[in-house]
């Protein structure tokens, strides 16, 4: 039993299934080798510390977010509309959660001093935004489809197009940082970061779906990206052995 909070006054979060979390030591992702721990992780009970976190009052409706308007005009590249919901494993909306996104520009270049890829910066594209999910857990933003770019992990290594997502969820235990990929990207089978996740279902969850419904005629393609956070156990159960 959970001696730290028994009986638990807050519902506990379910553990991740095998193969869902990427391992931190992943030799095919070279920079993981010297930055990943070697000792086994120590089980941490879900106490009030882990079951709380910064949460916010949700707006009634989706806050429109637009990354494509620069100080001098429209950012270059293919305009896209990304929308989705933050849900828990039981399909319940996670309302009022803080989401941050960042990405490369259409040419595959980040507005960052350490990005020295020989591709142009776009003075009208910074590539970041934040928002709070609405009462139904929804979010939506307009951006530019990010370009693929080379990196030095191995010979001729290229990252598939992706958008970084940071999501808080209701508690410290649900904090998530991940990447959204695009359907049909030919680089996905070669990417050690994407393929560090053993579960195929979990990998597929990281790929947005093309969405006819949110595609706007004569304007932009729509993509749908559902973010699913850990769900709560139905009944208080043993937490960790």
């Amino acid at each position: 039993m959970n001696v730290f909070d028994s009986p638990p006054t807050r519902p506990l979060y379910r553990n991740f299934q095998d193969g869902v979390l990427p391992p931190n030591f992943c030799p095919s992702y070279v920079s993981s080798v010297k930055r990943s721990p070697r000792q086994p992780l120590v089980p941490l009970p879900q106490t009030v510390s882990e079951l709380t976190g910064p949460t916010f009052a949700p707006p009634e409706n989706i806050q429109p977010v637009d990354l494509t308007k620069g100080p001098h005009g429209q950012a270059l590249g293919e305009r896209i509309l990304v929308s989705g919901r933050v849900l828990d494993e039981d399909g319940r909306a996670v309302a009022g959660t803080f989401v941050e996104i960042w990405q490369a520009n259409a040419a595959g270049r980040y507005l960052h001093a350490r990005d020295q890829h020989d591709a142009p910066l776009d003075p009208n594209f910074i590539g970041c935004a934040s928002l709070v999910t609405d009462t139904k857990g929804r979010f939506a933003f307009e951006t530019i489809r990010p370009g693929e770019y080379p990196w030095r992990n191995h010979y001729n290594a290229w990252r598939p197009a992706h958008i970084h997502f940071s999501v808080f969820g209701p508690a410290f235990a649900t904090r998530l940082i991940t990447q959204m990929y695009f359907p049909g990207d030919p680089l996905l089978p070669f990417d050690p970061i994407f393929n560090s996740v053993r579960s195929q279902t979990a990998r597929e969850r990281l790929i947005a779906l093309f969405d006819w419904e949110t595609t706007v005629p004569e304007y932009a393609l729509g993509y749908r990206f559902e973010i699913v956070l850990r769900g709560r156990q139905e009944t208080p159960m043993e937490n960790k052995p």
Partner: peptide, 22 residues
């Protein structure tokens, strides 16, 4: 019955762009 959970990916080298505001 239960949706598959979204897994983690690295924050990468350029997180300052997205995380600096906070």
């Amino acid at each position: 019955q239960i949706l598959s959970v979204t897994t983690y990916q690295t924050v990468g080298p350029y997180f300052k762009i997205g995380l600096e505001a906070l």
